[in-house]
Design a protein around this nucleic acid. Structure first.
Lengths: 237, 237
DNA sequence: AAAAAAAAAGAGCGAGCGTTCTATTTATTT
DNA sequence: AAATAAATAGAACGCTCGCTCTTTTTTTTT
C-alpha cells in the first residue's frame, strides 16, 4: 500500500465535476421549464447564474439575496433570469438536487474500487473530502439553506445525509466482521467521521488561512480514525 | 480517576444557565435601549421573545421570520416588541452576544479545575458538550445566522471560535510537553475535536432519534481522541 | 377614586420583494 | 435583405416587510 492511494489530482482527473458539466445536466433535466432552446446559450448563462447565486448566497444568505441582486451581479435582466427557472425557490432546489446527485453517484462508484474494508474506508474518506473541496460552495449552500426548502425536499436532504453515513457504517461493520477493525460503536464512529469531513466545507476559511491542504486533512483524519479502530500491530502494515 | 468525572447533572447544577438568568443579564446590559422600566415585566417578556425567536428562526431562518410572525407567535404586539429592542438586527446581535459570553465564561472556569492536561482535556470536552446541549438553540442560531451580522460582529464570532479552539490547542501542547500525549499536529487535533463537538448542536435531531445521550457522546469522543494522542500503556491508567 | 406613569396595541408609511408581461434587441433561416 | 424565431430588457403590479407613532389599556402612585 501507499502507492495506490487516491490523490487529489487523480480524483479530479477521474471525476471531472465541472460547472460546465453540471449545467449541461441541469439543462437537459429541466428542458421543459427552461425557456431557452439552444444548449450553448443556456449552459453559458446557467454557469453565470449558478456561480453568482452561490457567491452571493454563501456570503449574505439565499433569503437575503434578492433576484435584483442576482440580476445586477450576473448582468442578466430579470426577464432573462426567469427564462432559466420558474421561481426563486426552484433555483435553490436545483442547486440542492445537483449536490445530492453528484455525491451519491461518485462516492459509491469510488468506494466499490476498494478491495478490503480498510482500503474502502480510506477511499471513502478521501473521495468524500475531495468532493467537499471541489464542490465546497454547493455543499455549503445545501447545508445552510436546507431550512428554506419544502418539507418534501427537506426529507430528501436528511435521507441523503443518512445514506452517506450508512456507507461508512457498512464499511466499518464489514471490517469488524473480517477481524480487521476492533469492535466498537460503528454508528457513532461513522457519525464523527462525517462531522470531521463536513468541517472542511463549513469552515473552509479556517483551513485556507492555516494553509492546510485537502491532502493533509485527509491523511490526518485517516490516521486519527485508524488509530481508534485498528489494533496497534495491524495499523502500520 | 473515573469517580471525579464531571457528569451532565453536576454540570447543570453548577453552571445554572437558565433562560431567566440570561434575560436578566440582557435587561441590565441594554437598559438604555430597552424602553421598559420594571425588571420583572421586562424579564418575563424577554424570555417570551427569545424563546419564540429561537423557535421560529431555527426552523425557518431568521431572515425568513418576519416581526409579524414573531408578534403573532409570542402574543406581543409590534409596538410592544419594539420596546425591547431597537430593530430586527439588534435582536440577532443580542442572541449572538449572550452565546459567546456564556461559552467563554463557563468553559474557562471549568477547565481551570483540571489538575493535569488529561483531566483538563476531559473536562473541556465534557463541559463544551454539556453547554452545547443546554444552549443548543442559541448555538445553532449563532452558527446559522452569523452571515447576517455586521462585519464587526462577524469578526467577533470568528474570534470566539478561534479562542475556544486555542484552549484545546494549549491543553494538547502542555500534555505533549509533560510527556503525557504523543507528539502530533495539535492544531488539527483541536480542530477535529471542535468539529465533533459542534456536530452535537448542528445535528441534534440525528442523536435524539438514535437515543444517544450527551454522556454517551462525551465518553465516545474522549475515547476516540485519547486513543489517538495517548500511548497504549498510559491510556488505561 | 383621581392622577400620573408605564406598557401594549395596531393602523399606516415608504421601501423593496418576487413575479409577470409586453416591447425591443439579437440571431437564425429563407 | 426580409421574415421568422429566440432571447433579453425593464417597467409595472400586488404584496409584505421593517419600522414609527398616536391612541388605548393597564398599572402604580397619590
Amino acid at each position: 500500500m501507499g502507492a495506490s492511494v487516491l490523490t487529489y489530482q487523480e480524483f479530479r482527473d477521474i471525476v471531472e465535476v465541472s460547472m460546465e458539466k453540471i449545467c449541461r445536466a441541469v439543462f437537459h433535466e429541466n428542458r421543459d421549464s427552461i425557456k431557452i432552446k439552444k444548449e450553448e446559450v443556456a449552459v453559458k448563462n446557467l454557469i453565470n447564474i449558478f456561480n453568482t447565486t452561490l457567491e452571493l448566497s454563501n456570503t449574505m444568505g439565499f433569503q437575503a439575496m434578492s433576484l435584483r441582486d442576482l440580476s445586477r451581479e450576473s448582468g442578466l435582466s430579470m426577464g432573462a433570469l426567469y427564462s432559466y427557472f420558474t421561481g426563486k425557490d426552484e433555483l435553490a432546489k436545483i442547486i440542492q438536487e445537483q449536490g445530492r446527485r453528484i455525491i451519491a453517484d461518485i462516492l459509491k462508484e469510488q468506494v466499490e474500487k476498494g478491495n478490503d474494508p480498510r482500503e474502502q474506508l480510506q477511499i471513502a474518506i478521501r473521495a468524500h473530502l475531495f468532493l467537499n473541496e471541489v464542490m465546497q460552495k454547493w455543499f455549503y449552500f445545501s447545508f445552510m439553506e436546507a431550512r428554506n426548502l419544502s418539507r418534501e425536499e427537506q426529507k430528501r436532504a436528511i435521507e441523503s445525509e443518512l445514506v452517506t453515513e450508512s456507507m461508512f457504517i457498512d464499511i466499518l461493520d464489514s471490517g469488524i466482521e473480517k477481524g480487521l477493525f476492533r469492535v466498537g460503536n460503528t454508528v457513532l464512529t461513522a457519525s464523527t467521521v462525517k462531522a470531521m469531513l463536513q468541517d472542511w466545507y463549513l469552515k473552509r476559511w479556517k483551513y485556507s488561512r492555516r494553509k492546510v491542504t485537502v491532502e493533509d486533512y485527509a491523511d490526518f483524519i485517516i490516521n486519527l480514525i485508524e488509530s481508534f479502530i485498528m489494533p496497534k500491530e495491524t495499523q502500520a502494515g
